[in-house]
Design a protein around this nucleic acid. Sequence first.
DNA 1: CGGCTCCTTGAGCCCAGTCAAAGTCCGTGG
DNA 2: CCACGGACTTTGACTGGGCTCAAGGAGCCG
Lengths: 245, 245
Amino acid sequence: MNNPFIRKLENFTRFSQAERKALEDATGQNVRRLGSREDIVNEGDEPRAVNLVLEGWACRYKQLQDGRRQIIAFFLPGDLCDPHIFTLRQMDHAVASLTPVTLARVTQPTIEGLTESSTRIAETLWWEMLHNAAVQREWTVSLGQRSAVERLAHLLCELYMRLRAVGLTEGTAYDLPVTQADLADTLGLSSVHVNRTIQELRGAGQITWKGRRLTIHDLPALMALALFDPNYLHLDHEGAHLDAQ
Amino acid sequence: MNNPFIRKLENFTRFSQAERKALEDATGQNVRRLGSREDIVNEGDEPRAVNLVLEGWACRYKQLQDGRRQIIAFFLPGDLCDPHIFTLRQMDHAVASLTPVTLARVTQPTIEGLTESSTRIAETLWWEMLHNAAVQREWTVSLGQRSAVERLAHLLCELYMRLRAVGLTEGTAYDLPVTQADLADTLGLSSVHVNRTIQELRGAGQITWKGRRLTIHDLPALMALALFDPNYLHLDHEGAHLDAQ
DNA sequence: CGGCTCCTTGAGCCCAGTCAAAGTCCGTGG
DNA sequence: CCACGGACTTTGACTGGGCTCAAGGAGCCG
């Protein structure tokens, strides 16, 4: 099974065969490919369908009138952008690809069909939203309290955990396909300072980052440095009591 | 009608008499009062009931191992903390009162009863969640991109809009019952710098803040300074097509 | 090979932090 | 009614983390 969405959701609870099939079908329609750095949704748009990332990385961002840009969230394979966004009249932020991506557009009726067909799926989609909200809160904490090194280290730990949850890590290495400028807009730092901060982690022997390959050399040490506590991700099979079978 | 929760929700859509009654009943049980600066929910707790603020201010916060604290959200009268939190096994953040508060504890069956009794209520609770998520995103933008003055000005504008939505403003003045240290933990600044930033806004004739009374002298100017765009709050009757009658 | 885009490094500056000490406000109790 | 204590605010002096500006290197693609 190589559907990252199902893979992600099964970090919460196990599905039946029928449920997997339903999820597979729902996310297999309206698949499209986009290149790198393309807009997917613009601020002010009316919400139409929900986008699900199957391959590649995308991001949510907001731009201030004077051009400053903040990346608000990364969408990794398996991430769903706001299943109930239909309730709102217009988007208050934009979504864009960071790398070439494969997306599935999921319509409102499809989402409703899924939640009505299985309370287990409905509950799991709740979990997905709560997980995303928790990530957003932790980013708030990072930006408010963590220093530059801590912030970068924390992000690298988070990405590691999230990518591992969908099977996209090898040991403690993973593909980090973003530029330092993207990281700057994410971490609220200048790209120059992001570069210096990366050098600092390299110099301390914590990471290697070459090409797009990031390797963490001592995960517990990096977590300690980042004051990283994985609990907020809720990836630890919290819906075990709901498991199928 | 003095129920701030109903008042807030009616910024989205108008309810029928029966729906108002159902909301009133749901939020009138298990009402309790707490003093200032008391813990309401601790990190690591199992989620039990959802808290609804009826009077006073509370906040969501996270504390790092070394004591640094970030306030992640303000809960004003009418704000509900995460209707579906039950899905998670443990809280990843804490909730505490900032002033004396009156809270209603709403249980899971009560929430379910509400959403099943009326799709209009169900939809409006979705809106409430999306509104809260949007606020969280905007805080991320503030912490990442806005300078100290912009951040403070932006928060003051946001609080004005949110309090106005529940009828707690008088002209462009409202009660701001928090300390400068609280603001510091919210804005990711030191309390000394918050103080200097307040002086700056005072000196520019933008605000008066005396006792707990904050007055904004020129709202459009403050909004411009803060790069504040109220759209993200979605307080503009976006569910008009759902209105009762 | 030229021209992108992205990364790296240096120098100087400034916004915001820290430390420390007054000042103000307010509630309480004598 | 005043004295005291505690919490909060204000101010000054100094420090430092991160920003800006600017130039040069490295990698990649047509």
